[in-house]
């Protein structure tokens, strides 16, 4: 609890520094508004519902992309983790495609997917897919061989082994994949909206820059910060529910 208080104090100090630097002219720029001005705009736009609409549009894209990307990643990860031959066949391809930064492939993707939701959802799914795949494969590989052998001895079918032995044992690793890819999904959504957007929070950030409305831009950035923080909290709650045994040792 004490740790948390110290963290909040630091956050407040930094925000105060922001306010002071803009108010007393330590940073001179039209692009550096005071925190108070930013909060004012945020409040006004939240009241008018404009900001909520924008955020909802982005979140919807992010969630759909995240679900598609992580499902594909987990499924293929389970396959690659259990079937050695398939693994040898696909791993070079996966390793070659994995490092591609998403912004680099957006322009050619426009030709195939257009500039609407399909593009953004694909891009989010694409960036979520690889961390999920890699952590699932890792999780499956690290399942204690004794567990599988024991299950086999007890005449358990291959499907049941996957469902009741491998999947639960790989779950902590899969969850850490989730934890990496969740903020990644948010970032990619915003980047995609910045490059080829006409709606969503990324679009609003760029538009505010070009309209010389920095308060509006920082208000969007603040919202992203809060969303990212809340997503992580939600995720931790979810994780404690799903793999309670994993956290038992921590508390002991």
């Amino acid at each position: 609890m004490k740790k948390r208080t110290a963290g909040i104090v630091l956050l407040i100090l930094l925000l105060l520094l922001w306010e002071a630097s803009a108010r007393f002219g330590w940073v001179k720029s039209e692009n550096w508004p005071t925190l108070v001005a930013v909060l004012e705009v945020t409040y006004r736009q939240l009241l008018s519902g404009e900001l909520s609409l924008v955020l909802a549009a982005s979140m919807a894209r992010m969630i759909v992309g995240f679900v598609i990307g992580s499902l594909c990643g987990i499924l293929l990860g389970l396959l690659l983790g259990t079937l050695r031959t398939l693994d040898g066949f696909l791993t070079p391809l996966v390793e070659a495609v994995r490092p591609i930064p998403v912004p680099a492939i957006i322009p050619p993707l426009i030709l195939f997917l257009g500039i609407d939701d399909a593009l953004k959802i694909f891009v989010v799914a694409f960036s979520v897919f690889f961390p999920m795949l890699v952590s699932t494969v890792g999780g499956v590989r690290n399942v204690d061989e004794t567990l599988i052998r024991t299950a086999r001895t007890l005449q358990t079918t291959q499907g049941s082994i996957l469902r009741f032995v491998i999947l639960p044992a790989a779950l902590p690793s899969i969850m850490s994949g989730f934890r990496i890819s969740l903020p990644l999904a948010l970032i990619t959504t915003v980047v995609a909206e910045m490059i080829a957007g006409s709606s969503g929070i990324g679009y609003v950030i760029v538009r505010a820059q070009y309209a010389m409305q920095p308060q509006e831009m920082y208000s969007a950035v603040l919202c992203l910060m809060v969303i990212g923080y809340l997503l992580n909290l939600l995720f931790l709650l979810f994780e404690r529910r799903l793999i309670p045994w994993y956290h038992l040792s921590e508390n002991a």
Partner: peptide, 20 residues
């Protein structure tokens, strides 16, 4: 039906793809 873009250059690829 407008698809506004800011600071980007996606207009021509979108025409080429028949999107707009």
């Amino acid at each position: 039906d407008t698809t506004p873009v800011v600071g980007g250059a996606v207009g021509l690829p979108a025409v080429a793809a028949g999107q707009v």
